[in-house]
Write a protein that binds this DNA or RNA. Sequence first.
DNA 1: GGCTCCATGTAATCCGTTACATGATTAC
DNA 2: GTAATCATGTAACGGATTACATGGAGCC
Lengths: 187, 187
Amino acid sequence: MRYILFMDLSSTAYVILGMVSVHPRSGYEIKAAVDESTRRFWAASYGQIYPELKRLSEQGLVTGMDAPRGERKRTVYTITDAGMERLKEWLRRPPEMSEMRDEGLLKLFFSGVLEPDEAAETLRRMRDRRAALAEELAALEAVVIEKSDEFALMVVRGGVEYNRWYADWCERMEAELLATARKERST
Amino acid sequence: MRYILFMDLSSTAYVILGMVSVHPRSGYEIKAAVDESTRRFWAASYGQIYPELKRLSEQGLVTGMDAPRGERKRTVYTITDAGMERLKEWLRRPPEMSEMRDEGLLKLFFSGVLEPDEAAETLRRMRDRRAALAEELAALEAVVIEKSDEFALMVVRGGVEYNRWYADWCERMEAELLATARKERST
DNA sequence: GGCTCCATGTAATCCGTTACATGATTAC
DNA sequence: GTAATCATGTAACGGATTACATGGAGCC
């Protein structure tokens, strides 16, 4: 007999716990929920979800129940009391990890070897991307309002604001860049 | 004899090309440069840098030259014309990848199971972290100004602005959260 | 003498994505 | 009937971090 008292959970484990804390879901549904909500700041793939569900189940943090749809097998997972405790305990701990990888910024950073208008082109692309993302999230906002989930709404709106700020920053930097380029040409 | 005409380069390869495009550097110096500049939006470890330098050298995109310091062996890498062309070609391509992982946002997203003031605590931690980061980058700004690198400066300042926006957003969300919590308590 | 920094490298490991396999159900 | 979606899983692969090994140089 093995005693698992308090094994460290992976970050994916908490996404799963969070997702089933709202209401029971199948692995497939968890993946779908992640893809339309946390994906932009915390993704998860089938390759993580299914093995993790098995582990969480073994540790008694979720329980899987058969819930077939016709002849199609299906297992929905419910969070247990122990699972809810672990989730809350994690939520109360100060957030640690935060990282980003941004190819646009990297290109900008090295753009000293290019002509100013080539660098400006990078900024325009970045701007367009961010503007599109802001619109996408603004559309999602309507969907989230329906669910009346205060925190989900807060996060989507934050996403809209962030992408708008970013798009605006790109515009300003492009203008600045072209302005100094003009000034330099005239001397 | 092997003919490598146009093998795809890894993202790390471009960081290295970018870093040696400014002036020749050793692997150690590349790592140090990454750590004090691009790290926040594009990191690189020794485990990537040294093998990648070897590959880039084999492909004729950089050339390594012995540059010992006393008895201590040291190799500095210089970008070749071919390497510069590859770097520029990449810089001109529209940026694709951009991703983030943010534990704070993830915790916020699932904070519906907590008391409002516990969720507010998460926002306070996030705010403090962002404010500290903004200060850190503001201090770095002074160092970057010395180097008179227009693009590096643009990126650091962007970082300051971003973290200040983020910190401010956290403050506003905390206020909003506590306000609705008060309202709900009074009903 | 010991600590920190300079300097190069590799092996083990972790984390995560992609691709694939399989099969039922629903919509057109 | 066939394409898309629901549903579960795993194997292969790739990217990146961590840890370790090795050793010289400079400083207190």
